[in-house]
C-alpha cells in the first residue's frame, strides 16, 4: 500500500513539475485571491483586520478546489484510470498517493499564501510562523478529504459545479479549526488542542479514504 502510494504520488508530482500548472496558474490565483480579499475589506481595514486567518483559509479552500480538479483531470487523461485498474494497483495506495501529492502541492501554495497574508493583510509574522505546523496538518486533511470528494464528484468528467457543493460542508469544520488555531496562535493561546483536532480530522479522512476509495474506482 505504502509503495503504491509513493509511486502514485511521485507520478502526480512529476506531471505537476513538468506542466508547471502549480507555478503559473495556482500560485498566482492564490495571491490574486488574497489581494481581492484585501480590497474587499477596504483600505481602512485591510491592514489591521482580525479577519486575516479566516481569509487565509478561505483562499486556501478555493485553491484546494482548483487543485482537486487538476488532480482528477490528470487521472482521467488518455486512459490513465484504465491502466491503473489493469495494473491491479491497490486502490487504498492510489488514494494515499494522490492525497500525498495534493498535500505537497497545497503545502507549497500554503506557505506562499501565508507569506502573502503577512505582507498584504499585516498578519503578525511570529504568530503566523507558530501557526505553520497546524496549517500544514489542516492542509493535509483538506488534501485527503479533497481527493475523496474529487473521486466522488466524477473525477474530472463530472460537472465542475458539483465538487464545491459536495465538498464545502466537509471542508467547513476544517475551516473552523484552521481559523481558530491561527487566531489563537496570533493571540498567544495554547495550540496543542488544535493540533490534536486537526490530526483527528486528518486521520478520519485518511481512514475513510483507505476504506472507500476502492468502491469509487471499481467499475
Amino acid at each position: 500500500m505504502i509503495r503504491t502510494a509513493l509511486l502514485v504520488a511521485g507520478k502526480d508530482l512529476r506531471i505537476e513539475r513538468r506542466s508547471r500548472v502549480l507555478l503559473w496558474q495556482v500560485l498566482p490565483f492564490g495571491v490574486m485571491a488574497l489581494v481581492l480579499s484585501g480590497l474587499a475589506l477596504g483600505p481602512a481595514h485591510a491592514g489591521n483586520s482580525s479577519a486575516g486567518p479566516g481569509l487565509f483559509y478561505l483562499v486556501m479552500l478555493l485553491v484546494t478546489l482548483l487543485m482537486i480538479n487538476r488532480s482528477q483531470v490528470i487521472e482521467g487523461s488518455s486512459g490513465t484510470r484504465t491502466s491503473v485498474a489493469t495494473l491491479g494497483l491497490d486502490p487504498a495506495g492510489v488514494f494515499l498517493g494522490k492525497a500525498l501529492a495534493l498535500a505537497v502541492e497545497l503545502w507549497i501554495t500554503g506557505v506562499v499564501v501565508l507569506a502573502g497574508a503577512v505582507l498584504l493583510l499585516h498578519t503578525a509574522l511570529v504568530g503566523s510562523a507558530e501557526a505553520l505546523p497546524s496549517v500544514l496538518v489542516i492542509l493535509a486533511a483538506l488534501a485527503a478529504a479533497g481527493t475523496l470528494y474529487g473521486a466522488l464528484s466524477g473525477g474530472g468528467q463530472g460537472p465542475a459545479t458539483l465538487l464545491p457543493v459536495l465538498s464545502f460542508p466537509a471542508f467547513a469544520p476544517l475551516l473552523i479549526a484552521g481559523e481558530r488555531s491561527y487566531s489563537d496562535a496570533l493571540h498567544g493561546g495554547s495550540l496543542w488542542q488544535w493540533w490534536l483536532i486537526s490530526l483527528v480530522a486528518l486521520v478520519a479522512y485518511l481512514g475513510i479514504g483507505i476504506l472507500l476509495y476502492g468502491v469509487l474506482e471499481e467499475s
Binding site: Q193, L196, I197, L199, V200, V203, A204, G207, I208, I210, L211
Partner: peptide, 19 residues
Amino acid sequence: VLVVLALAVLALLSQGLLH
C-alpha cells in the same frame, strides 16, 4: 482502520476539547 477511527474520536472526546 475502524479501530484507529474509534480511537481518534475517543481522543477528541476524552479531552473535552473545542472550548
